[in-house]
Design a protein around this nucleic acid. Structure first.
Lengths: 211, 211
DNA sequence: TAGAAATTAGCGGTAAACCACTATTTAATT
DNA sequence: AATTAAATAGTGGTTTACCGCTAATTTCTA
């Protein structure tokens, strides 16, 4: 019985590319291709694949949202994240949600096939570059493990305005808040995203599609 | 005689995806696939395709570098840029260099084929979203056309270190410069990139792949 | 080879960001 | 009903970024 694989990616080039790569692999069958979160959720409800290749950036819903929703109702579906960003924050987020692997889009044919096979068998798969980063991160953060890194609604709003080049005072005015409050949110963002300054905030936010 | 198409992209998924999309188009023949700038230049030297699908981010050389080099020696090769960034700055840059089109990676099958056919026949092709943006830009910038926005070597170095979350003092130490000098470069960057603060610098730099 | 950029460095000053706290009220969750 | 997290606001302070100016070299280029 072949592996039933579903692909969720809004770029035809990517979906076609994966199909093409898997064309020679007789034991993998691409059963569905979804180009947005809505139809993906509907499709999963009707028939669950063994493995779901999930893009981080579908037009209507974010990767984390979709993964959480799918794994809650259909925990037997093995999600292999497909992303072009190697920002550790996002990798950890998806793995914590219960995804079985994280595959970079730059991966080659053999790697992709291998990753699919691995997660289908119940194993985890991480692109090599991420593996190394994760290990280094663990050594850095031996102690503080239970910190909550999910951004709150307010923090996301502030972050978006920071990216739009507004000062704290301008943000305070826009959101009808005290300057102090905005400063607090900003510092929370620095801590949660583990960066040193504004440059880091913008970098991580853009690379992860957080906003 | 079919259109001879070469693809330059380091992601197997993308290259496979395009091949797959063109499989049904009998009048387009993918003659070569290159995964880095070096082999691309060599390949072009040996046999020129009618159309070159050129990714903006090859590992060893940048899109603009490659386009300039190829068009200088083989102006009859029609370059169709393949990019995931819709930042106007980059679009204009590639078109000014002589590229015949700019295609977003999110494009669908029909669009891709159409773009290839169009440039092969000597026409220009721009993804619809870019077309609109370009027109708006022209109305905005009727007047100031001759401003020099190209970043200098030093400015790029400083910008990279800003993105790496270093302070001006740290940058000064790393580059063996005075703090004042770094501040000057930083302000030049703000002016040239037309942004208000660090957030803007990082945003533009990441979105355009300047560094 | 003259002129234009680029690179370097400085002065004086203001505005903004960053940091470590405390603390109250509201919302969510158990 | 009790606990936890989020959102709010504050004090007091240090560091960094931002801004406009001048100006001497060096390097590039027309």
């Amino acid at each position: 019985m072949p592996i039933k694989l579903a692909i969720a990616d809004d770029h035809p080039i990517v979906a076609n590319g994966i199909c093409s790569i898997l064309r020679d692999a007789a034991h993998v069958e691409v059963t569905d291709i979804y180009t947005n979160g809505n139809t993906l959720l509907k499709g999963i409800r009707e028939r669950q694949p063994d493995v779901l290749l999930l893009d981080m950036h579908l037009p209507d819903m974010s990767g984390p949202e979709l993964a959480a929703s799918i794994l809650k109702n259909y925990p037997q579906v093995r999600i292999l994240v497909l992303s072009s960003s190697d920002v550790l924050f996002l990798v950890k987020k998806m793995l914590k949600l219960g995804c079985m692997g994280y595959l970079l889009k730059e991966s080659d044919d053999v790697t992709i096939l291998q990753a699919i096979e691995t997660v289908q068998k119940g194993g985890q798969y991480l692109s090599p570059a991420l593996n190394q980063q994760l290990i280094e991160d663990m050594f850095r953060n031996k102690k503080s493990e239970k910190k909550n890194t999910a951004l709150t609604r307010r923090e996301k709003e502030v972050l978006q305005l920071i990216i739009d080049e507004h000062t704290n005072q301008e943000i305070a005015d826009k959101l009808f808040l005290s300057l102090h409050t905005v400063e607090n949110h900003r510092i929370s963002l620095l801590h949660k995203l583990e960066v040193k300054n504004t440059a880091g905030l913008v970098k991580v936010a853009l690379q992860t599609g957080l906003v």
